[in-house]
Design a protein around this nucleic acid. Structure first.
Lengths: 328, 328
DNA sequence: AGCGAAATTGTTAGCGATAACACTATCCGC
DNA sequence: GCGGATAGTGTTATCGCTAACAATTTCGCT
């Protein structure tokens, strides 16, 4: 920086002013400094700036390192959304979402003086870690705990599940079975609620809940059981991979989809349209979630207080061929 | 830090020594300092440390933000692998892997004084950006350009593709068709080479190459064409999602798998065992790739010079039900 | 006991930036 | 032509830490 200042014939402070777009610099000086910067290939030292200002232009994101479609899409969408905001994102991946791991990840980010934290926190334990956090750091949870008074952006699981269930009911099925995700996920709980609500609203019987764990393998297991029961004609799976497992179990047992059994999934993974048969499913708008999260966070950063804003993004039903009236 | 020093009754420098595990500190003093640190909940300021040492304990990873299974798994595996090494990872996601975006991501990491850079660079353009990089920064490419003399860790695409093709040949098929990935991916090219090689080695005819773009949709398109040709009895798809699309196209045209046509994929996505029928595929060992990359990088960091080490990880065939002799 | 080497601890000087304030010009209105 | 606002620029202190060296203690040995 000193070199730049010397070359431009000004003081280092003036260089700093140019760098930060400070208004009170003569146009001519500004140009000289810029030229010097370019000529020397000078790049400001981030660490020094952070040290003195106590702020970095980065947003910390905490997410579980997995290959689950939902969380991954969120993460990816959030990174995209950040693009224009001038903030960089630093992802703190965590092996599991237990309280300690999350707390550590949070500390790492705090060490780096991030301007705010986003956490993809679909299970209870991930949210618990947030209690110990200083209140003055901007924070948003994605898919977090609705019971906690922490800013939250989430897909409207309940509405999505209701749509899915209704779509089956409207096709004429007497009731709809549900294969849920793991019980400690909020997403899972929300989908169960939506399913149950739709059934109750329609005055349909609520069959026992079958649980799985998001994987096709677990869906397959659930499907084997469901396939044996002749009265099952409609199934709402908590996600598309579970649905895939169910589809396979059904096909193995000779139960045709959608003629004998209708199936609806959730997530609209890119392959869902190429399952056999193409899967009717619920598509959450990950981009909308990402954009909303970012704007909630930026507002906190600007205003300097956390609040407890909430945003819920409604998902959309994508009708394909896995749904038909009962009996073909 | 001064507070800690005061509480422990030592100088700040001694605190610093304890923090950095310097040997010449009396055990008793060390304990006193640790106690003070714990009591005050003191956390060292990263920025200050980086400022003075010019080094950070973080590894920068550059990857395209997408939801493609391969790259994502790499990333996730690498984060896991880093765990015990004492390094943190900072992911610089990039919208697309063109030269400029990658160059920017690299600069961002350089600004942060990362100790080394890992780049998941499956296409040519991503590698080009690396030419302008200072030679003294430790660097590893994953799935990068084999032609460039840059340290490289990669799955042995060619061996995997050969295994896949051979497995079909050995089942008795006269030849094997291949639906490839996008032509600018090294993975894609490697798989094509392996396929062609296996065919030539077996003296089989090499059918024209059909290309797709990793998605099930493109696989479906390719599959529709293949399904119409009676002479096609065996297909090797460049990845599992393409295979899924093919499976679907085949099933629509009434061509049974594996009775009429055998199909092999690549990647072993978690759902592959639940396709209809369960897909025989090639499983790359992402963890091995991650571990190898990390060790190559750490060696560079320790030794202070880049070299051009290469490691190739052999994938493994996972036999399931989508392969059978021709004619059932 | 006494001296040098080794172990332990303290002091001082930056790392590269920004903040706060001090200083010059320049320009306005009366 | 003079006081006072208003650019534009320079000076100095400081952020929290580590490196290098200086100072002190401890110890072993003759």
């Amino acid at each position: 920086m000193t070199d730049v200042a010397r070359l431009a014939g000004v003081s280092h402070q003036t260089v700093s002013r140019v760098l930060n777009g400070h208004p009170n610099v003569r146009e001519q000086t500004r140009l000289r400094v810029r030229a010097a910067i370019a000529e020397l290939g000078y790049r400001p030292n981030r660490a020094a700036r952070i040290l003195v200002t106590g702020k970095s232009q980065v947003i910390g994101v905490i997410a579980q390192s997995s290959t689950l479609y939902g969380p991954m899409s969120m993460l990816s969408a959030f990174e995209q959304a950040t693009g224009a905001s001038g903030f960089a994102v630093s992802v703190g991946s965590v092996r599991s979402l237990d309280r300690r791991s999350v707390a550590e990840a949070v500390e790492r980010h705090l060490d780096q003086r991030v301007a705010g934290i986003v956490i993809i926190a679909p299970v209870v334990s991930a949210n618990e870690a947030l209690d110990d956090l200083p209140v003055d750091i901007p924070l948003v949870t994605i898919d977090g705990d609705p019971e906690r008074s922490i800013p939250l952006v989430t897909v409207d699981q309940e509405a999505g599940a209701r749509d899915a269930t209704r779509c089956l009911l409207e096709a004429g099925h007497r009731t709809v079975w549900h294969v849920s995700g793991p019980s400690d996920w909020f997403d899972s709980a929300g989908r169960v609620r939506g399913w149950r609500r739709a059934l109750e609203e329609a005055g349909a019987e609520v069959p026992p809940l079958v649980s799985a764990d998001w994987t096709a393998a677990s869906g397959y297991q659930a499907g084997q059981m469901l396939a044996r029961m002749a009265e099952v004609t409609a199934v709402f799976a908590a996600n598309d991979h579970i649905a895939l497992g169910i589809l396979r179990a059904l096909s193995e047992r000779g139960r045709r989809v959608p003629d004998d059994v209708s199936v609806v999934g959730f997530d609209d993974v890119p392959e869902a349209g190429y399952f056999i048969p193409p899967l009717t499913t619920i598509r959450p708008d990950f981009n909308a979630v990402a954009t909303a999260s970012l704007s909630v966070l930026l507002r906190q950063i600007d205003q300097g207080e956390r609040g407890c804003e909430r945003r819920t993004i409604a998902p959309e039903l994508v009708a394909r061929k896995s749904v038909a009236p009962p009996g073909g």
